[in-house]
Amino acid sequence: MTAPVSAPPLPVGAIAITALGMTTSGGLDVASACASARAGATHWTQLDVEEPDLDTLESVPLKGHAVRGLTDGFEGIGRLLRLGDAALSDLMTSAKLEPAHHARTGFHLCLPGHFHATWLLQLELLGQGPAPMDVARAEFARHFEEQRQWRDKLETSLVPSLLSMQDLSIPPALRSCFHGGPAIFAQAVEQAIQRLRLRELDRCIVGGIDTCVHGDALTTLHTLGLLRTEEQPSGFFPGEASAFVLLERADALRARSAPAEATVTAVATRPAAHDRAADKPEHGVALSAAVEACLGDPRRKPNLVVVNLNGDEFRAREFGMALVRMREAGLPAELRYWYPPEPFGELGAATGAVSACLAVRAFTRSYAESDQALILLMGDDAARGALLLDDIPTQSRSTR
C-alpha cells in the first residue's frame, strides 16, 4: 500500500465533492455499487408487467433492475424513501458532518417529473379522435392538478422524513426540489454552486431518487412502448436508484479539515428545441451546446465520458448527431465511454448523481485512466445537461 500524499490546497472558488452515497441494484452503498458496475455485473429482477412470448404463446414478466430486498413490498413515497435513506446514510457515513454544520448546509433533491404521464395522456386523447377543446382542457387541468398535488406531497412528506431519518436539521429555506428527467441533476448542481459562491451556503447535498420498476411509472413506460421486450429490441430496461454527492466550497472544507475527492470544474444546461412527444428528431444541438460550454477552456480534455445511453434508438440517434458537433467543441476523438443504464437500468432523476458517483469513485480508486470526466445527461423531455469533473491526483485516497 502506498503512503498517503497530501493534496495541494484547492484554488479559491473551487467547488469540491467531499462525500458520496449511492444505492442501486448493484449494491446498497457507493463502494459496492461502483465495484459491481466496474465488474460488469448485472442484477435482474422479474417485474409485475407481463408480455406475451410469441414463440411459446405464454406470458413472461418484463426484466428490470430493482433494488431487491430494500424496496420489496414498498410503493409510492415509501419506496422512494427507502431508496433515499439508504443512499443518504451512505453519504453521511463519509461526510463527517457535525450538527453545527447543518445550518450552513443546503439540500437539493432531484425527483421524478411527469413528462411520460403527460405524453401518455396526450396520446390517449388523440387516440379517441379529435376531442372538443373544452374536454381536452378539462382533462389536462385535472392531470396537472394531480401532478401538482403529488409534487407537493413529495416535498412536504418525503424530504422532511428523509432528513429526519439522518438527523439532518437543514432549514426549509435551504432545501430545493427539482422535478424532471436525467438532466435535472445538472440544474440542481448549477443552482447549488451559485448559492455556494454567493455564500448563502458552505456546502450542499445534491442528489436524486427515482424508480421505474413499479406501479404507475412502469405501466406508463410500458404503454408508451419505451421498454425493451422479447419482441422489441430497441428500448430500455427500467431501474431504480438513489445517489447523493456533497458539494463544498474550498474554504469551508478547509475549515473542517475535510478531504476533497474531486472538483466540479464546469456545469451547463441547455433546452432542446422540442421534447420526444413532438415526434421530431432531435439533432443534438442542445447537448453539444452544453458540452461546448463545459469545454470552453482548451486545458479541458477529458478522456472519459459518462453518458446515459440506455438502448433506446431515439436517444442513441441524438447522441450520434451531437457527437459530430462535440468534436468541434474540442472533445478528443479517442474516448472511453461508460453507460450507467447498462448495469443499473434507466434511472430517471437519479441518473446524474449516479453518474457523478461512478466517475468520482473511478478517480478515487485510480481506474478512471483520465484526470477529467465529462458527464452527459439526456432524457425524453427537453432538458440536456453536462458536467465536467476533475480528479485531485495527489490527494490521500479513500479506502472505502
Rank of each mutant, 00 (worst) to 15 (best):
G26K: 06
S234F: 14
V245H: 08
L20Y: 13
S366W: 11
Q166S: 14
L10G: 09
A117D: 00
V60M: 06
G379H: 09
L295Q: 00
P9V: 07
V67L: 03
S89M: 04
T211M: 00
P259H: 09
V12P: 11
E75V: 14
M165G: 08
M1G: 15
A33D: 07
S157H: 04
D202Y: 03
L247R: 05
L109Y: 13
L196A: 08
L309F: 07
L295A: 02
H179K: 00
H101P: 00
D134F: 03
D210M: 11
D275C: 07
T156R: 08
M326D: 05
R199Y: 01
P160N: 12
R195G: 11
P233I: 14
P9I: 08
P343A: 10
G207H: 02
V291Y: 05
S288L: 12
G235Q: 06
P298K: 04
A262G: 02
W119T: 09
S161T: 05
R276Y: 13
L57A: 15
G379R: 05
L126D: 11
P341S: 06
S32E: 11
V30F: 05
A35L: 15
H179N: 05
G180F: 08
D85E: 08
S370E: 13
V360C: 03
R327A: 09
R79I: 03
D216T: 10
A273F: 03
E248V: 11
A329K: 06
D167N: 15
W119M: 09
G330Y: 13
P302E: 00
T229G: 11
R137Y: 11
